[in-house]
Design a protein around this nucleic acid. Sequence first.
DNA 1: TAAGTAAAGGTCAAAGAAGGTCAAAGGAGA
DNA 2: TCTCCTTTGACCTTCTTTGACCTTTACTTA
Lengths: 151, 151
Amino acid sequence: MRSLSDRIEKYLKVLIERSENEEVEIQRIELAETFRCAPSQITYVLATRFTASEGFITESKRGGGGFIKIRKFPLDENSVKTGISETQAENTLQDLKNSGFLTGREAFLLREILGREVLDPASDESDYVRFKILHKVMKLIKEMEGQWDVL
Amino acid sequence: MRSLSDRIEKYLKVLIERSENEEVEIQRIELAETFRCAPSQITYVLATRFTASEGFITESKRGGGGFIKIRKFPLDENSVKTGISETQAENTLQDLKNSGFLTGREAFLLREILGREVLDPASDESDYVRFKILHKVMKLIKEMEGQWDVL
DNA sequence: TAAGTAAAGGTCAAAGAAGGTCAAAGGAGA
DNA sequence: TCTCCTTTGACCTTCTTTGACCTTTACTTA
């Protein structure tokens, strides 16, 4: 018998799969009501099944009109071929910062590196380099998993 | 479900987009009536979504015939092509100073750097350099968000 | 012209509406 | 039984919305 967490996980992954852009936006309370559980249960599922090492980014806002957004990393074979634009790179960095995987300064530095001043914005070559750099960053996040200080 | 603030923000941004000169002028009470909310709600939206670090400047006047004017910084892709004149640069610096994002000395220094003695006023190349410098400044303001001292 | 009034916008604190955290209790399998 | 994963609930933090009260500006009137 699968647990509640498993069912919520499955439910969210189906939503993401069916989405156009590999992401889904929910309201914690609403989802909790749907599954008739405590809101913190949703937080738990996110924390255990939608981690960066699983390839997910989550973003949220509190207060009125609050939400939780779950997004899958753009790190599939497709991205390797098409590359990543400056804007996509910035969005990803923003996500990583918001999720606490990068500090403000780290994100800042990377943004500068990936920016137009360094990489010609109108070049496919640049997009590919951008992808390679970001891919490395993601890999580091995955592998280090909270042990950055060992560097 | 998006919040009232989100809807008002969207509304104003559409107005700005449709305008000729990237600015819009409204009356607080009128807009509040349109959205059936307290006038201070409008002030809140301005304070949270139309900040300088978001690329906006607001200006207002009280009393009879009062108004609120919202302007977008001239720092979009278009500016990249056309560059920024010395006068435009000065206006932007003035705005940044008035909004409290730059101190008097900082604005002064930048004004000197961007001025005619350093950058030939009759050169497209200069306009482009001016844009790049200002853009960097804005970016720093945005990224550092009150944490300049960490550098 | 000085004083008063009406018509704006500004401020700020409190209430409301989300999501976050964490420790403790509950369960399932080794 | 012991351990590890789930589930819950009390309490916290952040963002939104409102309303009472303040300040500024334009207009009117003695």
